[in-house]
Nucleic acid binder design. Structure first.
Lengths: 293, 293
DNA sequence: TATGTTTACGCTATGCGTAAGAATC
DNA sequence: GATTCTTACGCATAGCGTAAACATA
C-alpha cells in the first residue's frame, strides 16, 4: 500500500470514475487503473464495482475511503505543521477580484512571499463569477472574491466589507441620475445587478448604465465625464485623484462582502493558511484606511 | 512522502539509530539513510541530529513522529477492518508454552486456520522465559505464555488459569514428600521457583526436586515411579492415563496464570486478533473440561 | 458506435545493495 | 581504530505512457 494508491483511490471515489481521476491527477488513465488494481491486490479484496457509467465503491471500498481520508488528512497536517513555512515548496493558484487587487492585494502578496518564499504564486484576475467556477473545476486553489461561495465543499473566510460611494467628474456639480449614465461593475456581477434593480425601483426604466470589467477603466470613464460611478469608497481616494469627487444622491448601495474561499475537501493546508493571512492583511488595511466597513 | 519513508523514520526514531532500523527492517543501512534523506528533502527540513551514538530527533522530527504513528496506525486499521480475514496474507510467528500445547493449542490453531486460511503460522515451543525474550527482540509476534509480561510495550490478553494438582505413580499410595523427589517444570520457570520456596518453607532443605523442560517427560518420570509430580490438573487426565493418580498432601501451589502477549507499539492487528481468539478458545476449552479455574 | 475499462509492452527513473569515504569518539 | 552515517555507482524493477483490445449500453 502506498500513499499514491490511497490518494488515487480517493480521487476515483470522489469523482466516480477512473478516467476522471486520471484527468484530475494529470496521469494516464491506465496508470490509475493499475494503481487501483495494485491496491486491490494488496488488500486482497475488491474495492470498485466497474460499470458502464464510471464506478461504484464496494462495501470494503466505502470502509477504505474513510480511513484513507483520515490518512491523507494527517499527511496534510504534516505538511502544514512540520514543514517550516519558509521551506514550503508549492504552487498556489490564486484568483482575485479586481477590487481586491486595487486595495490590499500588494500587501497580502508581500506578506505571503515573506513567510513562504518558496511558494510559487500564480495569479488570475477575473470577475467573481468566473473565479467561483474555477474554484469548482479545481484550477484555482484560493479565490479572493465577492463571497461567500455557498457550497458545502467550499470553506469561506470572511473578509472586511467595502463600503460603496458615488463618484462624479469634478465638472458635474449636481448630477441628475435620471439623465447621466451610471457606471459600475461588470454586467455579470452581483453589485451591477443589485444596482440596476435599485435604480429602476427609484427612477424607473429610463436609467442608462455602463458596465466595465475593469475598475480603473470605470474610474477613467467617470473622470472623463462620461457619467457618474458607483464604486468602493476607498478606491476613489487613490484612483483619478483630483479628477473625481464623491457625492450623495440620498442613498447608497449595500456594501460589498468579500471572502477568501477554497475547497475544503480535500483540504489544502496552504490555501487555508493563505486565506487566514488574507483576512489579517485585509483587517489591518481596513483599520489603516479606516473606511472599508 | 511515502509510507515506507514514514515507517522507516519511525523505526529510526524508536530504535535511536539508522543502523539499528536497517537491521530491524532487513534492508541495507544506506537504504535507510537514503529514505530518511528523501523524506527530509521532501519536507524541506531536518528530522535527525546525527551524532556519534545513533541519532536524536529534531523538533520537527518529534512532531513528525506523532503524525507518522497516527498514519501507520490508520494503515494497520485498514488491514484489520477492510481486508476480509480469509484474504489476509501474513506471517504469524507464534511462541507457545508447552502447557498450552498440551491443552487447547490444537483447537486454537484450527480456528485460526479456519478464519485466516492465508496466514502462515510459525510455531516455537519454549519455556515462557525465552518466549518473553523473543517477544522483545521481535522474533515473535505473539506468545502464549505464563504471564502477564509486565512491560509498557507489551499488550497482555488474560487467559484462563490452570489449577495445579499433585500426581503420584499408582504404586506409591501415600507419598512422603520429604523422601520422594518432586518433579515439576523447568528450573528457570516461575512455578518451579515458587514450588521450591514453598517446599523449603514446609519441609526444610532436604527436599529433592527434579525439573523437566518437557511436560510429557515429566509425567513419564512420575509414571515410571521416579517421584511425584506437580502439574496442571487437566493435563493429568489425558497424559499417562491409568499409570498415575492425583493425591492431596494438604496444600496446593498457586494456579498458573497465562496470557496471550504481543508488542503493542507498533500494533500488530493480526497478533491482537489472534490473541483475542486464543482467549475465546481457551475459555471454551475451560468450560468444557470444567477444571482449569 | 460511444464510452470507459483492462491488457500488452517498451522505456525511464526510482531505489536497492555493495563498496568506499567521512566523521566522531 | 572502532563505530556509525554518507556518498558513489552499477543494476534490477516498479510504474509510467502509448497503443490496442475488450466490455457494455
Amino acid at each position: 500500500m502506498t500513499l499514491e494508491q490511497l490518494r488515487t483511490f480517493l480521487w476515483v471515489a470522489r469523482l466516480g470514475g477512473i478516467r476522471r481521476a486520471a484527468q484530475q491527477m494529470n496521469i494516464s488513465q491506465p496508470a490509475v487503473s493499475n494503481r487501483i488494481a495494485l491496491l486491490e491486490a494488496d488488500l486482497g479484496t475488491q474495492l470498485l464495482d466497474r460499470s458502464r457509467k464510471g464506478v461504484m465503491l464496494t462495501k470494503q471500498g466505502v470502509m477504505l475511503r474513510t480511513h484513507a481520508e483520515q490518512i491523507l488528512q494527517s499527511v496534510e497536517r504534516i505538511r502544514a505543521e512540520v514543514v517550516p513555512p519558509e521551506n514550503m515548496t508549492a504552487l498556489l493558484r490564486l484568483g482575485v477580484a479586481e477590487t481586491i487587487v486595487q486595495s490590499w492585494l500588494p500587501e497580502f502578496l508581500g506578506r505571503l512571499r515573506a513567510t513562504h518564499p518558496r511558494v510559487t504564486i500564480e495569479i488570475s484576475v477575473d470577475i467573481s463569477r468566473n473565479l467561483r467556477e474555477h474554484l469548482f473545476d479545481r484550477t484555482l486553489d484560493l479565490a479572493l472574491l465577492m463571497g461567500p461561495v455557498s457550497d458545502y465543499s467550499v470553506e469561506n473566510v470572511e473578509l472586511p466589507e467595502f463600503a460603496m460611494a458615488w463618484f462624479r467628474p469634478v465638472a458635474l456639480e449636481k448630477p441628475d441620475l435620471t439623465r447621466v449614465p451610471v457606471i459600475s461593475y461588470h454586467r455579470q456581477t452581483r453589485p451591477y445587478l443589485e444596482l440596476r434593480t435599485q435604480l429602476q425601483d427609484r427612477y424607473g426604466n429610463g436609467i442608462q448604465m455602463f458596465s466595465s470589467s475593469s475598475l480603473s477603466a470605470g474610474f477613467e470613464m467617470v473622470a472623463a465625464g462620461l457619467g457618474v460611478g458607483v464604486f468602493p469608497r476607498v478606491l476613489g481616494e487613490r484612483m483619478q485623484p483630483g479628477r473625481i469627487r464623491e457625492f450623495d444622491p440620498g442613498w447608497m448601495p449595500r456594501p460589498l462582502s468579500f471572502s477568501a474561499s477554497y475547497i475544503g475537501h480535500p483540504r489544502d493546508a496552504l490555501a487555508a493558511r493563505a486565506a487566514q493571512m488574507a483576512r489579517e492583511v485585509a483587517l489591518e488595511h481596513a483599520a489603516e484606511t479606516g473606511a472599508e466597513t
